[in-house]
Each structure stands twice: as C-alpha cells, then as structure tokens.
Nucleic acid binder design. Structure first.
Lengths: 211, 211
DNA sequence: CCAGAAACGATACGATCGTATTGGAATAAG
DNA sequence: CTTATTCCAATACGATCGTATCGTTTCTGG
C-alpha cells in the first residue's frame, strides 16, 4: 500500500490552529484557508482530515473541552492530601480560565458556546464537557460534605445544585473578564468570596471537624 | 427641501431585524441583505441609515441593552411597595432572561457578547449596559442592607461584590440554558437558591427587622 | 407649478468563503 | 522496476459577503 500519514496527530495540529484563529478573530472568523496556513499544511490536507468545516469545528471544540477537563483533573490529582476546600478552590480556578495565560482558551470557549446556542450539533460536545466538569465538582462537594459525619436532615446542601451554581458563576465571570467589564483579579475575588460562602454553609450543616 | 424620513424609527426597525436574524443564525450570520429583507426595506435604505455593518451592529446592541435595562426598571417600578427581597428576585429574573419568551433576546445577547470578546468597539456599549444593571442591583442590595439599621462593622456584605456575583451567575445560567445544559426551570431554581442565600446573609449582618 | 435636493431600488464590483476537481509526487507491494 | 494506490498542492467554481455607484422617483420650499 502507498503513503500513510498519522491523521490523528494532524487533526490535533489543525485543531490547535483553529483555536489560535478563533481566539483572534472570533468563531465564524476562522476560514479553512487561514487554518491551513496556521497549521502549516495545505488546504487540501485539511480537507482530507475533515469532510467539512463543521466537522473540523466539532473536533476542535472537543479538543479544547478535553484539554480543560484534563487540566482540572491533573490539578486535583496533584494535591490530593490537601483539604477539600483547597481542592474545590483549585478546581474552580482552573474552570474559570481567568488568568492571562488562559485568556485565549476562554475566548475560544466563549466563541464555541455562542455558536452552540444556535447550532445543536455543536451543543452536544459542549454539554458533554460541562457534564464532566459538573461530575467533578459534585464529587468534590460531596466529599467535603461527608468527610466527618453522616447526613443531617433538613437542608443538607444539594451538591448538584452547588456545582451548577459554581459552574455558572465561573462561566459568567469568565465572560465578564473577556469583555473587559471586570479585571481578572476582581473576578477571582468574587469567585473566592463565593467559595468561602459555600464552605461556611458546608460547615454549618456539620458543625464539628476542621480542615 | 426634498423628501424627509424618520431615520430614528427606521434605525429601530432595522435593529429589530438584526435581532431576529442574530437569534436565528448567530452573530456573524446576519448579512446586510437579510437584514434589509427582514426590515422590509431595500439594501440601499439600510446603507443610508448606517455607514457600515459595524455601525449597524453597534446600534443594535445598544438597542437590546436599553430594552433589557428598561424592562428591569419597569418591573421594579411596578412593585415598589413590596419587600426588597422580592424586588431583588424580580430584577434577577428579568436579567437572567431564562423564560421561553426571552430566549431570543438571550441568544442575541450572547451573540453580541461573544463578538465583543474579540472586538473592542462592540465591548463598549456592552459594558455600559452591564454597568447600568450593576448600579441597579447595588442600589437594591444597599437598600435591603440599610433598611433598619446602620452599618455593623466586620463583614458588612459588600453590595458591589454581591451585585457582581449575581450578574455573573445570571449570565452563566442564561448561557447554560441556551446550550441546553439546563432547563429554564433548573436554572431558575439555582438562581433563587442563591438569592435565598444572599438574603440570609443579609439578615445575619443585621439580626433585627423582618420584611 | 416647478426646480432641486434627498432618498430610493437596482445593480456592479472585488474579495473571500467552503467545496470540488485534478494532475502529479510519493510510497509500499509484487 | 513496475504498478497501483494514497496523498498532496494547486486551482477552479459558484455563492455570498460588504460596499460603491448610478439613474430614477419622490417630496418640499418658494
């Protein structure tokens, strides 16, 4: 048989180029030609990797989602001995993409989210990524709640609810930073204040037990 | 002098068309021709109203921002006698654009926000709209805090902070509803749970005084 | 009524888009 | 070495975009 190329790595390379361009010119502002140029391959090569532009974007959004999710997981695995509170804080930080070095990823994410709001096929992978993050947060919150005593009754602090709140707040803050309404520092402050509040509510349902 | 037309009303009519299209096909998916067709005017008429497409989008985003802000204000003015808690809840509801009938506006807003993240001229009007909403929320929270006693010291619950949190949470929830990750009902529940928490913290800084 | 200014609709233009096609270079099997 | 097949780069194509231009129509002030 003739020539063989590693499509998987080329696809990733192209996805990176899509991200770079989406970061600079917005979602619809990425053209196949520009992507090819950025990825240092020909337009034909891009077309061989992906049947259409839509397929390419789909792959790219999955790529970004995986990267973010995995980074959160890595960060958590790196500090398993610390308190649940610290772990939650780190997770939230990684999700919110507030720091300067994550600005590009934040813009890409927002671009895809906006597109997904009017394009169901794009929304699927996005939901999957969010579900992974939510699971992770629920696990952390549940651990923090259970670490020490059994349930208390009345208002046991629904972990799914809290995870939703945290996820939505992180997303909203990211957005506000992107449009220059908040600085990264202000947003971080707001996020951490919310986490402190969550932590206090956690303790109130289970009065004993420190870090 | 020759023919005269009411440019202001025509501009508004065109802005409405922009909104309808942005709702259907996303931000960059609106073309001058489609806008003209929707607004039932000729392409030339649109060009006479706005020097360029960018100018048209700028006007449209202002239009939407004004509409949302004014609706919040109207809603508040309609129930001035009620408790501050109820007022805050209503304001949050209007801002979050969760209900089905606000879905279109939510999509438009998200479209512009995503665009603004990579286009500074669009970000300006957006920040202005957000600032108006934030002012409003700060006012409500401050009123609620002060209604009964003076300051307390230690942790007096920073109204600006809380307004930021509320605004970001509302935005994040809206987004999640748009991509189908949450139903409007779930999002509303999360939002109201947060408001309840805020209200309880309010009371804790100032133990006396009921509704 | 009647000029003249403003608005209009239509159409032209150049650029850029996603996609299809195609002729040749590269490579593994026989 | 030949041959068949896979890949590639270039180019062609049709559509659509934002914008510019240009007669024509329409209305107002004198």
């Amino acid at each position: 048989m003739p020539k063989q190329v590693d499509y998987e790595s080329r696809r990733r390379r192209i996805a990176e180029a899509v991200c770079l361009l989406a970061d600079e010119h917005g979602p619809e502002g990425v053209s196949m030609r520009d992507v090819a140029a950025r990825a240092q391959v020909s337009l034909g090569a891009v077309q061989r990797c992906f049947r259409s532009k839509g397929e390419m974007l789909l792959f790219a959004v999955d790529h970004v989602g995986d990267r973010i999710t995995e980074r959160v997981r890595t960060r958590l695995a790196a500090s398993p001995a610390q308190s649940a509170a610290a772990a939650l804080g780190h997770a939230a930080d990684e999700i919110a993409l507030l720091r300067e070095e994550r600005r590009a990823e934040a813009r890409i994410w927002l671009a895809f989210v906006a597109q997904a709001a009017v394009s169901e096929p794009l929304a699927g992978p996005l939901r999957t990524s969010y579900a992974a993050l939510q699971n992770l947060l629920v696990r952390l919150i549940t651990e923090a709640t259970e670490s020490g005593s059994a349930d208390e009754g009345a208002t046991p602090l629904n972990p799914e609810h809290e995870a939703c709140t945290l996820l939505a707040l992180a997303d909203g803050l990211t957005t506000h930073v992107l449009i220059g309404r908040l600085t990264a520092e202000e947003a971080e402050e707001v996020l951490h204040a919310h986490l402190v509040g969550l932590w206090e509510r956690l303790r109130s349902t289970r009065p004993r037990k420190a870090v």
